[in-house]
């Protein structure tokens, strides 16, 4: 089941998007997400749609792979649409018992659906094209100014990359403990929610104990390799902007200009 979730996975191919500096992609994703919430008419989403789908094309990530990731948030999406559809007050179009669908409801449900879908598409596209390490490196470098107000930027990035390293190990361990407990008669599948939650205790306690032990070991191993925080540390793979990154920034600027002018156009019409 865990294997089906493609959100947050890296999809290894060679595209321009894959080779871009992670900082460009982080800023680009942020701008894209902001742009999603600017519009109030479907017209505005034309620019967003064109941008998103041309980026997907450039990324060389197969569309089916991306769609598979969307399945995981389908329920969330349906919930949002459902609540917007039924609970928005306004001009009634359709009424059946307590169900009251309004014109405004349909509109806002439609917008929410588009926004959520695009939001997930856009941000998962970033993780598809960026390795976790590049991502943490990019975040570290972008957040560097926060160091001045005493935010431990390097430490946060280090924690993130260690977490990423240990996710598969802990998953494997969970599986192992689960099988061991099942072999001794533990039942993780039957019963109501409460019973199932209770049955997780013999799984979670050994898992936590082992995670703490691993953390202790790792901390010792890191100290033994002279790790002493971010000061005075050099990088094996330092981030450097190249020509294509500046080109990508130009494209982003063009996108922002396009979005803003669409927004102004929308205001004049609407």
């Amino acid at each position: 089941m865990i294997r089906d979730i493609t959100i947050g996975q890296y999809y290894p191919t060679d595209s321009i998007l894959h080779r871009l500096d992670p900082r460009v992609k982080l800023i680009g994703t942020l701008l894209f997400i902001v742009s999603l919430f600017l519009f109030h008419s479907f017209l505005g989403y034309i620019a967003v749609t064109i941008f998103l789908f041309s980026i997907i094309k450039i990324s060389k990530v197969p569309f089916r792979f991306i769609i598979r990731g969307m399945k995981a948030i389908l329920i969330l999406l349906l919930f949002t649409v459902f609540f917007n559809l039924f609970l928005t007050p306004g001009e009634t179009i359709f009424k059946l018992g307590f169900i009251n669908i309004t014109k405004e409801g349909i509109k806002s449900a439609g917008f929410m659906a588009i926004r959520l879908t695009y939001l997930i598409l856009g941000s998962s596209l970033m993780t598809f094209t960026t390795t976790p390490n590049q991502l943490t490196d990019g975040l570290e470098k972008l957040m560097r100014p926060l160091n001045r107000i005493k935010v431990p930027v390097h430490e946060i990035a280090m924690m993130m990359s260690i977490a990423l390293r240990f996710i598969p190990i802990l998953l494997e361990e969970t599986d192992k403990i689960m099988k061991a407990q099942m072999a001794r008669g533990a039942d993780f599948e039957s019963g109501g929610i409460l019973k199932r939650a209770k049955s997780l205790i013999p799984l979670l306690i050994p898992l936590f104990v082992s995670a703490f032990r691993r953390a202790n070991d790792l901390a010792m191993a890191m100290e033994a390799r002279c790790y002493r925080g971010g000061d005075g540390r050099t990088k094996m793979k330092p981030l450097k902007y190249s020509g294509r990154d500046f080109a990508a920034y130009l494209v982003l600027c063009a996108y922002v200009v396009a979005v803003i002018s669409m927004r102004m156009l929308e205001k004049r019409i609407g």
Binding site: S161, R233, K237
Partner: peptide, 30 residues
């Protein structure tokens, strides 16, 4: 120092980056 558990002393998600971890800490040029 090399420890007992191989999993709990590897820091990075790529082999070469893990080997580079020590020199990075020492401030060795790239």
């Amino acid at each position: 120092m090399v420890f007992q558990n191989p999993d709990n002393q590897i820091v990075a998600t790529v082999v070469e980056e893990d080997v580079g971890f020590g020199p990075e800490n020492l401030g060795v040029p790239t």
